[in-house]
Design a protein around this nucleic acid. Structure first.
Lengths: 143, 143
DNA sequence: ATAATAAAAGACAAAATACTCTTTTATTAA
DNA sequence: TTAATAAAAGAGTATTTTGTCTTTTATTAT
């Protein structure tokens, strides 16, 4: 479904959102532990997301990753698009380049429906909406 | 979503179903051309599906791949499971091994819904149901 | 200024996926 | 029984994805 990179990216963004809820910054080591991800790998991923403006970072002591006020509205769909591109939301299920309404693959119509539901679900899911449930231990990001 | 291997597998099975509708067998070359897939690669994939009993084959002149009567009821979900395993239908969206109803990831509930819709769709889609539309040029398997 | 901290960057390695090429085996028809 | 046909099998290559390690750069506090 999602690439490993994308899975880590989503988990990291949700984790940062929760940890930085009150202006705190989070270091890579904390993030890596907090979401059970390889430290250097998640570092790469976050550097990429940072360049793309989905997350902020600052170097030096007391540095780390954090979200700006308006970034809590970032959706999981935004993250997926930034990391895996939008093939999941627009591509053909059977991998046909020229698949379209006019020249559809056998699965085209049925898949378009499912795909839209998935897209809508990910668009409506915002990184910050899980903060409380995570704090209360009702949802998990490890293992 | 699906691996390339799986995309080819689904397209090949649908193609074989259509071509072998009236007891004809199809060679690998025909299949490869018919679905725009690398010949030797699709051969491997079909050998695997053949071992798993999803398609029949016979060697020698007039040989090729074909479906037995009851195999036209094979669903796309069967093919996906045979090729990619059932991670798509049962695994966690965020890649968490221990994600479950009791220890859910943030996306668990929302994703379970989508995943079931996709599973149901693929379970209800049978390889043979596209035969007519393909013959009429209303659906396509190339490019 | 200096030492400590923490992200950024770059090179590298391992594993998985995707794909190719060659040889072997089975079947059929002449 | 021989030649042609077509899948099966196996070895090998290429690319992408995933992950590691080391060095550099920026920031902060002392």
């Amino acid at each position: 479904m999602f690439s490993k990179t994308c899975e880590y990216a989503i988990r990291a963004m949700i984790f940062i959102s929760q940890q930085s809820e009150h202006g705190m910054k989070v270091g890579i080591k904390q993030i890596a532990k907090g979401i059970s991800a390889p430290e250097h790998f998640i570092a790469k991923i976050l550097q990429d997301l940072s360049r793309k403006g989905l997350v902020q970072s600052s170097k030096g002591p007391n540095g780390g990753f954090f979200l700006e006020a308006d970034e809590i509205k970032i959706s999981l769909a935004d993250i997926v698009k930034a990391v895996d591109g939008d093939n999941l939301f627009t591509g053909c299920a059977l991998g046909l380049k020229n698949c379209s309404e006019k020249k559809p693959c056998p699965l085209h119509d049925k898949f378009t429906v499912i795909r839209k539901q998935m897209h809508d679900m990910l668009l409506s899911a915002k990184v910050a909406e899980f903060n409380r449930e995570l704090s209360q231990g009702l949802k998990h990001l490890k293992r």
